[in-house]
């Protein structure tokens, strides 16, 4: 039985300009200890998927239209808030892209880092503080005994992300959701943080959902990858298969447009047209207007994520029929 199983999640935002279907029928599951990468461009719904699971969607304007997210027998999307609160922040934790804005600038690091323990565990403040100190040391902060009393602005970007990780992992969660945790950091610091996440995952045996737009980060870290486009999962496979035998034209196009995989100085492949307007209801494949293999039928027929081989599924009708 998977650790987390999301079925037919639909999240939309109701605004004056219409209904934005940010997540449009997403289903996936996560095994214990597994690392799942969610890749997509901005607006593809990768963050909203995870925000929905964590109950972080502002409602209104957001609305979770349908779906279930089963975690240990509890449906996180439809259970009473008290029950969800016992899981979120304790057994499922999250870290965010920008460590500058996701820490509270008014509170000392010590208070922020032990907050999950105070809330979720029956623990004295002194004992929580001890564990906070140990958590900071575990994420590689030198001189933790002094630094635990500092404010967030006294830390550098990489150090703040370490504090965030310490805070997220202090309750020993079973799932860590990492939403572009290294995008705001320099490459050398990014390497440190990725190593740290790997190390902590190894120690705690937790599952990680890693949201990123960087295919390079995914290739080293993730066991399985799912590619999102316009609120839908268009392809999912284990990392090797996805990189070496991508089936969906969007995945292929993404790979052809990154300089790292192309000969130097060659013309990069560009995806024609613009990302779709998700406020308009699409019948067919959302990528069809930009796809070089798109036909009229693609824009008419609804697409579904179907397996093409064990562990590999994609949503391209033409590839399934063997036409491309």
């Amino acid at each position: 039985m998977p650790l987390l199983s999301v079925q037919d999640l639909r999240t939309s935002f109701h605004t004056r300009n219409g209904v934005y279907r940010a997540v449009d029928g997403v289903s996936f599951s996560l095994e214990r200890g597994e690392t799942l990468g969610i890749v997509g461009e901005s607006g593809s719904g990768k963050s909203v998927t995870c925000y929905s699971i964590m109950g972080l969607i502002p409602q209104p304007p957001g609305r979770i239209e349908s779906g279930t997210a089963m975690f240990d027998g509890v449906d996180l999307l439809n259970c009473p808030p008290t029950q969800a609160r016992r899981i979120r922040g304790k057994r499922i934790a999250m870290i965010f892209q920008d460590p500058m804005t996701s820490l509270n600038p008014y509170l000392r690091v010590s208070e922020q880092i032990i907050e999950p323990l105070i809330i979720h565990e029956n623990i004295t403040k002194a004992a929580a503080w001890e564990r906070g100190l140990a958590a900071l040391e575990a994420v590689g902060i030198n001189d933790a005994a002094r630094r635990i009393n500092l404010y967030p602005h006294e830390f550098s970007g990489g150090m703040r992300q370490r504090v965030m990780i310490a805070m997220a992992l202090i309750t020993k969660p079973e799932i860590l959701i990492a939403d572009e945790p290294t995008t705001a950091l320099d490459v050398t610091v990014q390497a440190q943080i990725l190593e740290l996440i790997k190390k902590m995952q190894h120690e705690l045996g937790m599952a990680v959902i890693f949201i990123t737009h960087d295919l390079g980060v995914v290739s080293g870290l993730c066991d399985r990858v799912q590619v999102m486009y316009a609120g839908k999962i268009v392809e999912t496979a284990d990392t090797r298969t996805l990189f070496h035998h991508p089936k969906h034209p969007y995945t292929q196009a993404l790979q052809r447009s990154i300089p790292a995989l192309q000969p130097k100085g060659s013309e990069l492949y560009t995806i024609r047209g613009m990302p779709p307007d998700i406020s308009k209801a699409e019948v067919g494949c959302p990528f069809a207007p930009r796809c070089e293999f798109g036909t009229d039928a693609c824009s008419r027929e609804p697409t579904t994520l179907q397996p093409s081989s064990p562990g590999h599924a994609h949503a391209c009708g033409r590839a399934h029929r063997g036409e491309i």
């Binding site: 990489g158 490459v187 990014q190 995914v218 995989l261």
Partner: peptide, 26 residues
Amino acid sequence: ALVSAIPTPNPEVERTRQRIVLLGDP
């Protein structure tokens, strides 16, 4: 160190290579 820190979009290369992780911040 800078070159070794860039993640490459190739699972085989990425999993086998030895990365030089610099300590500390600039």
